[in-house]
Design a protein around this nucleic acid. Structure first.
Lengths: 195, 195
DNA sequence: GTCTATACCAAGATAGAC
DNA sequence: GTCTATCTTGGTATAGAC
């Protein structure tokens, strides 16, 4: 991993973020040192500061990118004819998008409290915006008479919490295929919000 | 908070664990220093080592106590006539028990990766034992024909994940009473596992 | 049992040579 | 742009006086 001196601006930046992502997810933000990150990349600790003003910005940028990617990907989905279809779509999207990015997801959950207050506010707004997407689907379905939901806000949080549970146990190559998992969760979600 | 010199064995021990609990939950295990804990209690950092061999043991003991309390409380519940009653009971118990101990719950979730391997194994076993309690209820209800569950293991994890979501948003004195919250979640859980 | 003092080490971040 | 070297701070843990 030793590196010779020279200019590597184009690749070092991404590699730093990638290493930070991996290490933060594995050991937690507070437990990871700048020297560890530098070691992973193959540079000295001081060199990191050509790419980030400090450790906090490194964390923030990772979380911000993740949330923006999530929102962009969801907004790119094709419009569904009704709320039931939209909910079905949400379940599949949420499971697959998150399973593809275990490190980002883990950090976005666990490291909220290590954000500075201003950074926290910004990430929270993004997260809230994603929740609102689902809540809109549920409320729409409720109004259309497709769903039977006592409280759309709670149902929103309950569905997301349930789906997030997948990340704690699913491993590809395990007992169930991704399609099967998606179907099982869709079945539970559908029944929970209908009568 | 200044303290004079002297012997306070009986109260200092619990106060140390209480302070550690609060601080670990607030800022995370890795981000909290022994000096901070000592400061909260009103002793010098060195004095902590009369009560714990090291920081790791402090964390482990908190988590172990919490999981043992959880299992003991659940096992103390009265036996229900059927699986539907047992599930209803589980939902209420889980929500209330966890909402009463936000700090313990937070730590038990977030700090698993900061346990030493041996300590992790022990806590995992306790957590698994609690999950098994619910899985037994679901499997029993499935056999009795009361439930309609595609996969009891996944349903177990999904129900617990959904219920855990309560901890992220519920605040007493808010829009909904605890009874209402319990009812709303019970409704969703019941529908998700029946047909 | 707690204190003060300290050993020892690693953290985040910066300065200046190349 | 990266290196080496270093500043400053704060970490865990221990020793010995009271």
């Amino acid at each position: 991993m030793a590196r010779t001196q020279g200019s590597h601006s184009d690749i070092t930046g991404p590699r730093i973020r990638q290493a930070a992502l991996r290490l933060f997810a594995r050991h937690g933000y507070a437990a990871v040192s700048m020297r560890q990150i530098a070691g992973e990349v193959g540079v000295q600790a001081g060199a990191l500061y050509n790419y980030t003003p400090d450790k906090q910005s490194l964390l923030f940028r990772l979380m911000q990118q993740h949330m923006q990617d999530l929102l962009a990907a969801y907004n790119d989905l094709e419009t569904q004819p009704d709320a039931l279809g939209a909910l079905r779509q949400f379940v599949g999207f949420h499971i697959r998008f998150h399973l593809e990015r275990p490190d980002e997801v883990f950090i976005a959950y666990m490291e909220l409290r290590n954000l500075s207050p201003e950074n926290f506010t910004e990430i929270e707004a993004l997260r809230r915006s994603y929740e609102d997407s689902l809540e809109n689907v549920l409320r729409e379905g409720q109004q259309e008479g497709l769903f039977s939901i006592a409280d759309t806000k709670i149902a929103t949080l309950a569905v997301i919490a349930m789906l997030n549970g997948v990340m704690t146990w699913y491993r590809s190559g395990g007992r169930l295929s991704l399609d099967e998992v998606e179907l099982i969760y869709w079945d539970m979600v559908r029944k929970a919000v209908t009568s």
